[in-house]
């Protein structure tokens, strides 16, 4: 049995300006110990689909239209708020983007780490404090005996995110959800946090859903990648397959639009610099329900069918096992023809 099994999840926000169709039928499963990188831009549904599983979207305006999300066999979407509270911060840990707004500024780090241990694990205060010190040490905060009594403002941005990670893993969750945990950090600090997460993953053996817009961040940490666009999964599969045998035109366009880190920038005889390969057009208007493939209006390989009928997520023909794509076109053959 997979650790998490999401089936046909759809989420909508009913606002004064109309309904936002944020998540439109998302299905996937996650095995114990697996790290899944969920990649997408704003409005892709990458964060909302996870937050709605955990009961963390405001209802109203948010509304779960349909679907199930089984965690260890139990449907999270059918649970009461009390049952969800027993799972959040316990079996499912969470880390968010901005540690300054997610940490309580008037509570010491100790109080915030031990809260989950006392509440979920029924630990005594002394034992919980001891565990908090161990956790700070585990996430690489120097001098944890002293630091445990300090307040969030006494930590730098990178150290604060380490505190958030310590809280997220305090109860040794089976699943850790990390929503853009390094986006607000400087690049050198991001690199340190990524190293830490790789290390923790090995030590603790937990499954992880890492939500990001940055293909580079998940390249080095995820076992599998799931690319989302317009509230749907466009492509999902083993990390190397998604990067090297890309099947979705959106993933392909995204990867090609990134500047190459190693290749020299070749200037022509007139001194003109080369252009980046760009995806034309604008992201979809989420107020309008999509009849077809949401990427079709921007996709140079789109067929007539793409515009009117949404393709199901299916095994990519001739691809690695578990490499799925939602496309009516075959990116391999259109690319071969172009070449």
């Amino acid at each position: 049995m997979p650790l998490l099994e999401v089936n046909d999840l759809a989420v909508r926000f009913d606002t004064a300006d109309g309904s936002i169709h944020a998540v439109n039928g998302v299905s996937y499963s996650l095995e114990a110990g697996e790290t899944l990188g969920v990649v997408g831009e704003s409005g892709s549904g990458k964060s909302v689909h996870v937050l709605s599983m955990l009961g963390l979207i405001p209802k109203p305006p948010g509304k779960i239209v349909r679907g199930t999300a089984r965690f260890n066999g139990r449907d999270l979407l059918a649970m009461s708020e009390g049952e969800l509270r027993d799972i959040r911060g316990n079996e499912i840990g969470m880390i968010f983007q901005d540690p300054m707004t997610s940490l309580n500024p008037v509570l010491s780090v100790r109080t915030q780490i031990t809260e989950a241990l006392i509440c979920h694990r029924k630990m005594g205060r002394a034992a919980a404090k001891q565990r908090a010190i161990e956790l700070l040490d585990l996430v690489g905060i120097p001098d944890p005996h002293k630091r445990v009594n300090q307040y969030p403002h006494e930590f730098s941005g990178g150290m604060r995110q380490r505190v958030m990670i310590a809280i997220g893993i305090a109860c040794e969750p089976k699943l850790l959800i990390a929503d853009e945990p390094t986006t607000a950090l400087d690049v050198t600090v991001q690199a340190q946090v990524l190293d830490l997460m790789r290390d923790l993953k090995k030590k603790l053996g937990m499954a992880m859903i890492w939500i990001t817009h940055d293909m580079g961040v998940v390249a080095g940490i995820a076992d599998n990648i799931q690319v989302m666009y317009g509230g749907r999964i466009m492509e999902r599969g083993p990390t190397r397959a998604v990067f090297h045998d890309t099947r979705s035109a959106y993933t392909y366009g995204l990867l090609r639009s990134l500047p190459d880190h190693d290749a020299p920038v070749v200037v022509d005889a007139q001194g003109r610099r080369p252009r980046l390969s760009q995806i034309p057009g604008q992201p979809p208007d989420m107020f309008k329900p999509q009849a077809g493939d949401p990427f079709a209006p921007r996709n140079p390989y789109a067929t007539e069918r793409c515009l009117v009928e949404a393709p199901p997520l299916q095994q990519a023909p001739g691809g690695a096992p578990g490499h799925m794509v939602a496309a009516w076109y075959d990116l391999r053959s259109v690319r071969e023809k172009a070449a």
């Binding site: 991001q190 690199a191 940055d214 293909m215 961040v217 390249a219 080095g220 880190h261």
Partner: peptide, 11 residues
């Protein structure tokens, strides 16, 4: 050296 590379092998 800290910038992540969008290629799993090079990363």
């Amino acid at each position: 050296s800290a910038a992540p590379i969008p290629d799993p092998d090079r990363e």
